[in-house]
């Protein structure tokens, strides 16, 4: 027996649509604007009917169901970006069950046929509903990947403190791959700017593991091979303890407590000192003026 699902849906398209939209509003899809909701639903329902007309099977894996899968990709993506949870996103499809089932009860008198068609509809909608979850997750993964990339760019500024002195203020947890990227860009900048001293400040780094410590040491060694010197500053007491416990050898690496101390050393090594202009008197004068 041929499935009547497509024909029944086609005949009652506008009725299902309005019931479905109402159903979703009741379930609280208020974050999507009314227009968007209606256009999403209209589009989905049209593609569902087309899919049923074109495809013999109720499995959405086939290429015949491509258009509706793409439609769900977009809906899930939009909802993912709006901060919907996966189940809220899947509700888009599952909320269509009620209007369709009640319609089938009205349209089909024969109870065997009713069971058959209800089963077809439910299996199809379940697959589509699960598909939204997958699509939703893909969107989230894209977002996470993009944010990771952005964070990598954001958190790795190599700044020039003075002619010939660079600083790399590192913030946040260092993993091995991030450290590597940061270190490579530091060495690149050393070459581009011809800086002989680079300060790696790790004040904003909560923990350091063996791999990261080794990356730091490798960077210091590589910089030395290029003809530049690195100073590591801002090592917290806990990190100092970790480094000793891990047995990482920091001999040969200049370390300073704060960025200011490191900068002082850097200036001294490039033959410069910092002095107050005009001594104490002008200092006092400036204070009074302020």
């Amino acid at each position: 027996m041929e499935s009547q699902l497509a024909t029944i849906l086609k005949k009652n398209e506008s009725k299902i649509l309005s019931q479905w939209v109402e159903e979703q509003k009741k379930l609280g899809s208020t974050r999507v604007s009314n227009e968007d909701l209606i256009s999403q639903c209209t589009n989905f329902l049209r593609l569902l009917i087309e899919g049923l007309q074109k495809n013999k099977s109720f499995s959405i894996a086939g290429t015949g169901w491509d258009p509706i899968r793409r439609c769900l990709d977009e809906v899930s993506r939009a909802r993912g970006l709006l901060g919907f949870s996966p189940s809220e996103t899947a509700t888009f499809v599952f909320s269509l069950k009620l209007p369709i089932f009640s319609l089938l009860r009205q349209e089909i008198a024969d109870s065997a046929q009713l069971t058959e068609e209800t089963w077809n509809a439910t299996s199809l909608l379940d697959q589509l509903g699960l598909y939204t979850t997958e699509a939703y997750q893909r969107t989230r993964e894209e977002i996470i990947a993009r944010q990771q990339e952005e964070m990598l760019e954001l958190s790795t500024p190599v700044v020039k403190l003075w002619d010939g002195i660079l600083a790399l203020p590192m913030i946040g947890t260092l993993d091995s791959s991030r450290t590597q990227v940061v270190m490579e860009s530091l060495l690149q900048r050393i070459m581009e700017t011809g800086s002989e001293i680079a300060i790696i400040d790790i004040t904003g780094v909560p923990t350091v593991d063996t791999l990261v410590a080794q990356h730091l040491i490798k960077t210091v060694t590589a910089a030395r091979l290029m003809g530049a010197e690195c100073i590591i500053s801002g090592i917290r007491p806990q990190i100092a303890a970790t480094i000793v416990h891990l047995g990482v050898d920091l001999a040969g690496v200049t370390t300073k407590a704060s960025l200011a101390d490191a900068f002082h050393v850097a200036l001294a090594r490039s033959g410069r000192t910092v002095t107050k202009v005009g001594g104490a008197r002008s200092e006092k004068l400036r204070e009074t003026r302020v």
């Binding site: 270190m183 060495l187 490798k218 060694t221 590589a222 910089a223 091979l225 290029m226």
Partner: peptide, 15 residues
């Protein structure tokens, strides 16, 4: 010495 060369040398085990 180029940065990439320096990194590779260190990785190779030569300082």
């Amino acid at each position: 010495m180029q940065p990439a060369v320096a990194i590779t040398l260190v990785e190779l085990g030569l300082s």
